[in-house]
Structure formats: C-alpha cells, structure tokens
Simulated scan of single mutants.
Amino acid sequence: MKKIILLFAFTFGVSAFSQIKVLKNETLVEIGKENSVGLYKKENKYTFNYQDINTSNLNTFRSFSFLDVNGDVMGLYKLVTDGFIDEPTGNVMLELPNDIIELHYEKNYGQPTVQFIQFINKNRKYVGKSQFLNKKQIDKIFGVGTSKAALYNKPVQKTSAPVSTTVSQQNQFNETPAATKQETPKKKSRK
C-alpha cells in the first residue's frame, strides 16, 4: 500500500510542477505555393504568406489572413484573374479585418502581372510587397487545376452573387470605369 501511495504522490508531484506542456498541433493545409508566395488554409481561415521584397532583408516573410465568408477566396481569385484580362486603370484596394491590400497590375516583358501590396495593420507607413505574379503562378497559388482545389467549401460554387459584388467593387476603385468597359472589346479582338 505504501508503494502505491508513493507512486501516486510521485506522478502527481511531477505533473504539478512541470514547466513544459504539450500543445495540440494545429496544422495548416497548403493550397498552393509558387516561389515565395503561398496560400494556406486552417479550418475556414485562409492565409497568404509571401517574401517581402520591399525590405533590404530578404528573409522577411509577411502574411495576411481572412475568413472565407460567402466564397471570398474564389471571389478574390476571380478579381485577381479578371485584372489580367481587363487591366484596371489604378490599384484595386481591398480591406481585410487587419490590413489593407492593394492589387497592383503591371506588364512585365509584355505579360500582365499582379503584385500584392499590404498596408500592415491598415497603416500606410508599414508596407509589404510580394513579387510580381503572372496568371499561371496565381492559378498554382490558388490550387486551380489541382486536387487541392477540392479544399474550398462547396457552397462557394453555388453562390455567385458575392463574386459579382466584388467585381463591381473593383470598378469603384477605378478612376474611369466607363473607359475600362470600352477597352474590353479591343482586348478581346486581339486574341
């Protein structure tokens, strides 16, 4: 009986005074990654992780996150890829819960590209910039055409209203939305 009490007291004493605690390992699922830009998912929260080319230290990585409410991830993908087809006249601004993101479109070697510009904590003094990405790289980051695209929620495909709302918000940030609509037939006729 003494041995049982001694064993119980020893195990209780060790667990009560231990400083190291094992935490539950919560994993992020990689949706897609291209060079130094990646998209990750944890439950209903999506995180963009990118190497900040705006700093002199090339080991600076930044991220911004948002919840996928009403198909926001696919709405963002559509907004970004629509900018390749019909380039906006200015940067497209998106407000997230903690940050402001600008989509900056530019042609590099004749190919349309996009750059994510992050105003950290909605402060214009702290700016992070991703590398320029083309359409193929954006598809890879969002997992389009891969088995990882199945990680998106199924209701996203059903609701198309938030996507059109997002596209109309893009036109609000353009300086001349009418000029953008007039350029569309010209660009399509070149193809």
Results as ranks from 00 to 15, higher is better:
M74P: 07
G75K: 04
L76V: 02
Y77D: 01
K78Y: 09
K78I: 10
V80Q: 03
T81K: 03
D82T: 02
G83L: 03
G83M: 02
F84E: 06
F84M: 00
F84Y: 00
F84W: 00
I85A: 11
I85T: 13
D86F: 14
D86A: 09
D86P: 03
E87G: 05
G90Y: 07
N91H: 07
N91G: 01
V92N: 01
V92W: 04
V92Y: 01
M93T: 12
M93A: 06
M93H: 10
M93P: 02
M93C: 03
L94Y: 04
E95T: 07
E95S: 09
L96G: 02
N98F: 09
N98W: 04
D99W: 07
I100G: 01
H104A: 10
Y105F: 08
E106H: 10
Y109P: 05
P112W: 12
P112Q: 15
T113N: 12
T113D: 06
V114T: 02
F116K: 00
F116M: 08
I117K: 14
I120G: 04
N121S: 15
K122L: 08
N123Q: 00
K125E: 14
Y126A: 06
Y126I: 11
V127Q: 03
V127I: 14
V127F: 06
K129R: 14
S130E: 08
S130A: 02
S130I: 02
Q131L: 10
Q131S: 14
L133N: 04
L133P: 15
N134T: 15
K135Q: 05
K136Q: 15
K136L: 15
I138F: 06
D139I: 00
I141T: 03
F142C: 00
V144P: 12
G145M: 11
G145C: 03
G145W: 04
T146M: 03
T146K: 01
S147N: 14
S147F: 06
K148Y: 07
A149S: 13
A149M: 10
A150D: 12
L151W: 12
L151E: 11
Y152T: 04
Y152F: 14
Y152P: 00
N153W: 03
N153H: 06
N153V: 10
P155L: 07
V156H: 05
Q157P: 08
S160K: 14
A161M: 14
